[in-house]
Simulated assay, not measured.
Amino acid sequence: MFAVREEVEILRSKIVELDSTIAQLQNENAILREHVPQEILQNLDGAGPPSPALSTTPAPTVNAIVAAQ
């Protein structure tokens, strides 16, 4: 039981780290989108299905996904 609890704590720590990375990347994406000419953004958006890295809507956090399970 101790090993399971320890693993849960490690995974929770990793989730917090990943949430932080997601937030940072979303902020970087927003800044980059502000400085890219509109025609380039239109080409990216119209080139096919939107890439998760280019999405302007925030993705669900890992915590929300874990909580839903």
Results as ranks from 00 to 15, higher is better:
residue 14 K to Y: 04
residue 53 A to I: 13
residue 27 N to K: 07
residue 15 I to C: 02
residue 5 R to Q: 12
residue 61 T to D: 03
residue 28 E to C: 04
residue 20 S to G: 12
residue 30 A to F: 07
residue 52 P to N: 02
residue 68 A to P: 03
residue 11 L to N: 11
residue 69 Q to L: 10
residue 2 F to T: 09
residue 10 I to H: 10
residue 11 L to G: 03
residue 4 V to T: 14
residue 63 N to M: 02
residue 51 S to L: 08
residue 43 N to V: 03
residue 32 L to V: 08
residue 62 V to Q: 08
residue 49 P to N: 13
residue 56 T to N: 14
residue 6 E to F: 09
residue 50 P to A: 10
residue 18 L to I: 02
residue 38 Q to F: 01
residue 35 H to K: 09
residue 17 E to F: 01
residue 64 A to C: 00
residue 24 Q to W: 01
residue 18 L to A: 10
residue 54 L to E: 07
residue 33 R to L: 10
residue 24 Q to I: 00
residue 50 P to G: 05
residue 46 G to W: 06
residue 49 P to H: 02
residue 44 L to K: 03
residue 2 F to Y: 08
residue 42 Q to P: 02
residue 41 L to F: 05
residue 56 T to H: 13
residue 41 L to D: 00
residue 15 I to T: 06
residue 44 L to A: 10
residue 19 D to W: 00
residue 50 P to K: 11
residue 10 I to N: 06
residue 26 Q to V: 04
residue 40 I to M: 12
residue 39 E to N: 11
residue 8 V to N: 05
residue 24 Q to F: 05
residue 13 S to Q: 09
residue 26 Q to L: 11
residue 69 Q to H: 07
residue 50 P to Q: 07
residue 51 S to D: 04
residue 62 V to Y: 10
residue 15 I to V: 13
residue 13 S to P: 00
residue 59 A to C: 10
